[in-house]
Design a protein around this nucleic acid. Structure first.
Length: 636
RNA sequence: GCCCCGGUAGCUCAACUGGACAGAGCAUCGCCCUUCUAAGGCGAGGGUUACAGGUUCGAGCCCUGUCCGGGGUACCA
């Protein structure tokens, strides 16, 4: 929060300066420098002015300093700025008033990080996970789940009225495939494996292998697909039973990762509800769709979107009348932003790990109060970049139906692939390629539960080594937290438009730039507070002025930047910003921890001030970790 | 073919959205535990930011072209 004050003060000082000196208006930056030994904040304003004024940047910087800043610093006593330099390179370099910065920053201690109201209670829906209920989650899905959950946490924290939806595609081809496995290949329903693993690892893969030899089986899947859409058919009932069973196992995996939801939306109900008809009517009215009757067209007899993106047609209803994926997604999207009335009823599906209620849609909406999910100001759909084209079509259709383009956001990210080493470990042939794409159909993936189990085991051993006397319940709990931290952090620290090359060996490393490293810095700090003999003080200016070594200032500066990164994460829907901030915060703390004694400091006043610093670090680190769903362990 | 994304140290990735000398982790090699947890810290080596032009006071970032990799372009999702 405080660092932002410094930047704001400099920005307004420079804006006033432009007016006073009658300089032309220019865009200029007020930012952090690449290295902290240069300054705390710099501005490029002299460069921007130099073109219009036809003077050298350094001369302008010096002029600004001499004519404006010098007297500003002399008169403004409560300034966050302590000194300014016109650098020969042309930059204006500012130093912060460290005592003031320290005081303001450590004051946060007092009110435990007040929530910044960025969202103003804006109604936001976040759809993520949405894994076909015919298989278990693999690491590729985890990127989606964790990304969506972190965005939820960040929006929730910044006062958005946010809800999480999980779209259950219970009537698609992938579900049809495993029904074929059970009903036509007669694979057993009974298994010792976790049921989602069994369906994905064995049934789904096996059926897809059989399709290659036995084309009549493919016909069966078409038949199954048509039957599922009739709600009262035997197949439809079986599908419901089957998908519920798989879904429940998938949810266990998500809950294990500390991911929660507000509502399950079943695809089958989107077709069966009036939702589909209403949107269809609206689309017909606006001539967005038509039945293709051109006998030359490859889409003869289908209901198509005209001029989808590049003027190409996109099929909504197949010639046999069944709906394609996008035909269900458009009404769903329209429902999200309230272009249609809510046709659904809601019932309590279950209670989740965090004691919150998970609701699910149902077709009967009589005598029910509506939980108010639909008609959001903003709908965010978390789905990978391969869906970009489809998502763009959906946006365009919503726009043609009268919605603002700003209300539907596709949060896109690149997929997760397996490194060549990992592919080899799994006996996957990749012919000299650098990585392998995962494929549920081919059985090429790293299962999420299995990965968590491996991480848990390693973390357990590591924790036991360090805490030989600890009891088993504690070790289990800590190991689980560490495993989750490792996997969550690894999924969000990269840029969204970069493929994650997943490597098992690397992911099992709990050192360096990892989630456990963040937890460790927090745990270390907690031990200092725990062992302290003094009660925690509130910062005052005298205590603040005792904190002046390099590592203290660096840590204070990093803490003071928390809200800037939170804003960045919120506006850009970017959990990465929080993840990288937390890492940098942890690094600063570890350097401090190494070089600056707290409990062993002889000067009691200094020791007390450092305790406040450590405690503030704990608060900010814990808050940051919560935002990305990592437990702030007090001991590990 | 057309559209989208990527190419930065041996490997995996950053770079505050056009600013100062391109930074971390892993791996390799050194050093630091009678001192608040060594899941840590310090140091060393490692770079023509794929390539060629262009715009700019300034380009890893913007523009054009080329090369390489991935994805999309289904009556699959």
């Amino acid at each position: 929060m405080t660092f932002k004050f410094l930047i704001n003060e400099i920005t307004s000082l420079l804006n006033d300066m432009i007016n006073e000196l009658n300089y032309p208006n220019v865009d200029f930056s007020v930012d952090e420098p690449p290295r902290s030994d240069l300054c705390d904040v710099y501005s490029n304003i002299a460069f921007q002015l130099s073109r219009k004024l036809k003077k050298k940047p350094f001369d302008i910087a010096r002029e600004i300093y001499e004519k404006i800043i010098k007297s500003y610093l002399q008169t403004k006593k409560d300034s966050m700025i302590s000194s300014v330099e016109a650098h020969p390179a042309g930059y204006l370099n500012f130093r912060a008033n460290y005592t003031k910065l320290t005081y303001e920053t450590l004051l946060m201690n007092k009110f435990e990080q007040g929530m910044p109201d960025i969202g103003k209670n804006k109604h936001v829906l976040i759809e993520h996970t949405s894994v076909n209920p015919n298989k278990a989650l693999h690491v590729g899905h985890i990127r989606n789940v964790v990304l969506g959950d972190c965005v939820y946490r960040i929006l929730q924290y910044t006062n958005h009225n946010a809800y999480v939806l999980n779209y259950v595609d219970d009537s698609g081809l992938q579900v049809a495939d495993i029904i074929v496995g059970f009903k036509f290949v007669n694979l057993p329903m009974q298994t010792d494996k976790k049921f989602d693993h069994y369906c994905g690892d064995d049934v789904y893969v096996k059926v897809n292998e059989m399709y290659k030899q036995n084309t009549s089986l493919v016909e069966n899947s078409r038949y199954v697909l048509r039957e599922i859409e009739k709600s009262d058919s035997e197949i439809a009932k079986f599908a419901k039973e089957l998908t519920t069973k798989v879904l429940n196992e998938q949810l266990k995996t998500c809950w294990r990762l500390k991911v929660r939801y507000d509502c399950l939306n079943f695809e089958s109900q989107i077709i069966q509800s009036r939702l589909w008809e209403n949107v269809l009517q609206a689309m017909k009215k606006k001539e967005i769709v038509k039945v293709e009757n051109n006998s030359e067209s490859k889409h003869l007899g289908c209901l198509v979107i005209q001029g989808g993106l590049d003027g190409e047609e996109k099929v909504l209803l197949r010639s046999d009348g069944t709906a394609t994926y996008i035909a269900k997604d458009i009404p769903y999207a329209a429902w999200k932003i309230g272009l249609v009335e809510d046709p659904f009823g809601y019932y309590k599906y279950t209670t989740q790990f965090d004691k919150t209620t998970l609701l699910a849609t149902k077709l009967d909406s009589r005598n029910e109060s509506n939980p108010g999910f639909h008609a959001a100001d903003l709908a965010i759909t978390v789905i990978d970049a391969r869906q970009s084209r489809l998502q763009n079509i959906i946006s365009k259709v919503l726009y043609m139906l009268g919605a603002s383009l700003l209300r539907y956001v596709h949060l896109s990210y690149e997929v997760v692939t397996l490194s060549s080493d990992t592919a080899k470990m799994l006996d996957i042939s990749i012919d000299n390629k650098q990585s392998a794409h995962m494929s549920g159909r081919k059985g090429i993936y790293v299962n999420a539960d299995n990965l968590l189990d491996m991480l848990h085991k390693i973390a357990y051993e590591a924790a036991k080594l360090r805490n030989p006397d600890a009891d088993n319940i504690w070790l289990e709990r800590v190991a689980e937290s560490i495993a989750i931290a490792a996997i969550r952090y690894s999924m969000i620290k990269q840029d969204l438009d970069k493929t994650i090359t997943f490597d098992i060996k690397e992911s099992l490393n709990l050192e360096g730039d990892t989630g456990p490293y963040l937890q460790y810095s927090h745990a270390r700090a907690c031990r200092i507070i725990e062992k302290s003999m003094y009660p925690l003080m509130t910062i005052d200016h005298d205590l603040a002025s005792t904190l002046k070594t390099k590592h203290e200032i660096a840590l204070i500066k990093e803490i003071s930047k928390f809200e800037m990164h939170l804003e960045d994460a919120t506006f850009n829907l970017s959990p990465k910003s929080i993840a990288r901030y937390a890492y940098s915060l942890a690094t600063q703390f570890n350097a401090f921890y190494e070089k600056v004694p707290v409990l062993h400091e002889e000067n009691i006043e200094v020791s007390k001030a450092r305790l406040i610093l450590v405690n503030t670090f704990i608060i900010v680190m814990k808050t940051s970790l919560n935002l990305i769903g990592i437990d702030a362990l007090e001991k590990m």
